[in-house]
Write a protein that binds this DNA or RNA. Structure first.
Lengths: 334, 334
DNA sequence: CTGAAAGCGCTTACAG
DNA sequence: CTGAAAGCGCTTACAG
């Protein structure tokens, strides 16, 4: 410190009152010239603020979560926060480990997108009094409902609209490939689809509702098996695009054409689905925005500028008609 | 602290000698029962070890970088490190900002995949004595060569093999869509392609070598324009799959067929390229492995178990023949 | 307006 | 083998 006390430079660099303008300027100059970078870890220790948030997702190579992560990281960066990437691969133990690590790292908040319906860790987060927001999925535990913030898509409506679209195009033999049924989004989508089926008045056999676990590979297998069954469905509604693309492989590999022989729908609207020759009809989900909004809410909580109130945001599910269901060819038949 | 000094618990929990087994066990038990989590930030401060690495990439929603990031995060996690995700969007200023932040956060090391040929920040990293490894791209500054570790694909060979494959299939009118020519990978691929052209003995006009900047959109535009020119190419070699997919859109939208009218190649072998109906012929790049190996080398440096030596790893570029170049139809013609 | 002191939550020598 | 003290690099009251 070429000319002043440590307190003086601390106050200067943090723009705190208690020091003359002239001296402040001088200190800033010297700091700049010498490339002085204050240690954020020491700062964290005394301020109890790390300016780090944790982001918990299943898999960064999954296009859905990658978009989510992009929204999170962009927004965090914009507000001066760094983000620690935590991928759990859907493993609850890994999730627990990461939660522990994030807490002992003193992160200011957590964005969690992997919550399971009966999630055992939400209480932990509440007890630790660490700000967090659930995105994509929420805990389905009634007494927790008012205690956590969340932002999700209207999965029920997504599940409903998909069936409705297929039905209007003339399909009665519809197969549903669900997400991971331990998670709220999959549960809600399935509820929506079942409600639509009921409303419409058609029944589909149990064997035509299969859990695809949001996995491309799993959906491939499920679809392949169904296609080989004796009364195969004429339409597949996969509850995410990943699985829809898996089903697509199975359909095409078995020599069938889309949508001529088989109609196919997904949910999420990932970019790959828009490619020529794929043109997947789907339900749009605002992935980037969900991540971005999640961070904004989280930072509001952390900085408590806004009086705290539990926020619950449910984003619209919008039908995106492309070519895998045959709307272009026939239009709605009913 | 129910029964011992702070030093005692510190030694117990860190498995340091200097305390009796019995007491150690007891302390560990109590720690477990009370759910005590030592503050990693305080630890960082005294140990000068944060167990955090920084990962710098262009864009997490880009499939190539997402795979890379997956390899990095998985491996870091396995070795007890957390990873801070930093996306620069190819912006050097953002890169600089992140480097500063990472340093003041006291990260133990950095994986950087966004380095530019004349990168102004490598010297900074060396001066700061912070371990780092360049993956995917390297600085093309001779006197820095022996000072940084890197692991990259053999981009020259990738560029070479693509041209060779197209030529053997009978193409003379080839267009090349390059990556960002301020980066080593793009430069090397282009060199390789030019060398192949020379070896083979064909010349392609300047207007048929265009910079696509590793952007889907840019490649679309470049390809569209070239297709409309009066002597259009019969084959496109995009120097990554992202761009190949962009070119594919342009080709298909203009009513041409692949590979009947136009042959198409990429580099990277992202998963989307393998989808039915896309089946992009490409050069395989080991993305996940590159990230994973990068972290292993980085951690070796950080922990200095292995005597330090500058490592340079160049991964093989392997041709993956699928359907966009017409090999299935005709086989090699020359 | 400025400087010396205490403290954030740990770990590491250093005496007992 | 154990406990009291110093220190990591900062910030924040608290006297001068």
């Amino acid at each position: 410190m070429a000319n002043a006390s440590v307190a003086a430079v601390s106050m200067s660099l943090n723009n705190r009152p208690g020091i003359g303008d002239e001296k402040r300027q001088k200190i800033k100059e010297i700091a700049k010239k010498t490339g002085y970078q204050p240690s954020l870890v020491a700062k964290s220790l005394v301020n109890k603020r790390s300016y780090i948030i944790g982001l918990i997702i299943n898999d960064i190579a999954d296009h859905f979560f990658a978009e989510l992560a992009k929204g999170v990281e962009d927004t965090a960066k914009k507000h001066g926060y760094s983000t620690i990437l935590c991928t759990t691969d859907g493993n609850l133990k890994t999730q627990e480990d990461y939660l522990d690590i994030l807490c002992s790292r003193g992160v200011d908040g957590i964005i969690i997108s992997t919550v399971v319906a009966e999630d055992p860790h939400i209480e932990f987060l509440i007890d630790e009094k660490i700000p967090f927001v659930c995105i994509n999925r929420i805990p389905l535990i009634p007494y927790l409902e008012k205690k956590a913030e969340y932002i999700i898509m209207d999965n029920y409506s997504a599940g409903y609209k998909g069936i409705e679209h297929l039905w209007k195009l003339g399909h009665d033999k519809i197969a549903i490939i669900t997400g991971s049924l331990n998670a709220s989004n999959a549960i809600e989508s399935l509820k929506g689809s079942k409600a639509a089926l009921k409303k419409i008045g058609i029944k589909i056999p149990k064997r035509c509702i299969k859990e695809g676990k949001y996995s491309h590979q799993e959906a491939y297998l499920v679809c392949e098996r169904l296609l080989k069954s004796k009364n195969p469905p004429t339409a597949f509604f996969a509850h995410d695009d990943n699985m829809a693309l898996g089903a697509r492989e199975a359909i095409l590999h078995s020599g069938l054409e889309i949508p001529k022989d088989i109609a196919l729908m997904g949910i999420d609207n990932i970019k790959t689905g828009a490619l020529a020759g794929i043109e997947l009809t789907t339900i749009s989900q605002k992935k980037y925005e969900m991540g971005a909004m999640g961070v904004k809410i989280l930072i509001n909580r952390i900085e408590e500028k806004v009086p705290h109130m539990v926020e619950k945001i449910v984003l619209d599910a919008e039908l995106v008609v492309r070519k895998t269901c045959g709307y272009q060819d026939s239009g709605y038949l009913r």
